[in-house]
Amino acid sequence: MDTAYLVETVIKVVVILLVFSALAGFGTYFERKILAFMQRRLGPMNVGPYGLLQIAADGIKLFTKEDIIPTGVVATIFKLAPVITAATAFMAAAAIPFLPSFTIFGYTVHPIVADVNIGILYVMGVMAIGLYGPLLGGMASANKFSLISAARAAAVFISYEVVTGLAILAPIMMVGSLSLIDFNEYQAGGIGDWIVWSQPVAFILFWIAAFAETGRTPFHLIANDHEIIDGFGTEYSGMRWGLFFIGEYANMFFISFVIPLVFLGGYGDGSFLGALALLGKMAFFFFFFLWTRAAWPDVRPDQLMWLCWKVLMPIAVINVVITGFVMMF
């Protein structure tokens, strides 16, 4: 392990942390603007041109607000919960190749922190730990609404995890590897090679499960404002609450990178155009998260469990079996 490698890794980690923390801030701005346009409103307009400096204003507010720990909460767990959500979201990014490798000043840079050969498994596993944030925050809060939210977090977790695993299994069988770079190489030949054409069912299932994983609108039941106030976030204030937000938006960005990498060809042959295409696909999937929020109602917890266990899981199992038969004969 030489020094150059160490320095390179540290730089990559810092860049990813800074870029995606900033993007999480911009994500809130995009969300408010897009929702506003879809509902024929203007959204944030007063702070800066087109309300762009609203992010800075929100940041200052979050950082300078008093950090209140209510009496009656389990203080250690209460303080720890938001950190888990934010930290695991960024840990999952370690195995995602964000761009094709490029050469700068004669030095080849691979924009992936650790090219482990089990990339997709690691990403899904670490993202799953992120749901411990809502669970612990809700259970430690000594608030009935937070407790309901924690119970829902556990229900969501045990429902979607099976669907994600079984849906991703069929593409893994085709590629024969768990590394996201191998997934990309498998589809490097162009649009005709994309896995989505041979695995459309797995693609749709994984996409649906991604909504449950990030807790976005059709499955936003963990923190549904109109039923249980803010769920696990009810008792939080200031930057601890902000950490939950950063975790949620970073997760949305990372899953928006993973879906194109697995199903839609990723960065293709690694040219400049391919890198732009990956960013474009990522932007589309992120936009789709916001679009769904404007267009769809929320489901109840029992409806989510019914959907995951009785509809999506059997379809995923059948998909795996059919893929196996097709590959065998």
Partner: peptide, 16 residues
């Protein structure tokens, strides 16, 4: 990775 995935799910059930 399997250790992480299996035990996050298992301990989550104990939480319930």
């Amino acid at each position: 990775a399997v250790q992480i995935i299996v035990y996050t799910g298992a301990v989550m059930a104990i939480y319930a």
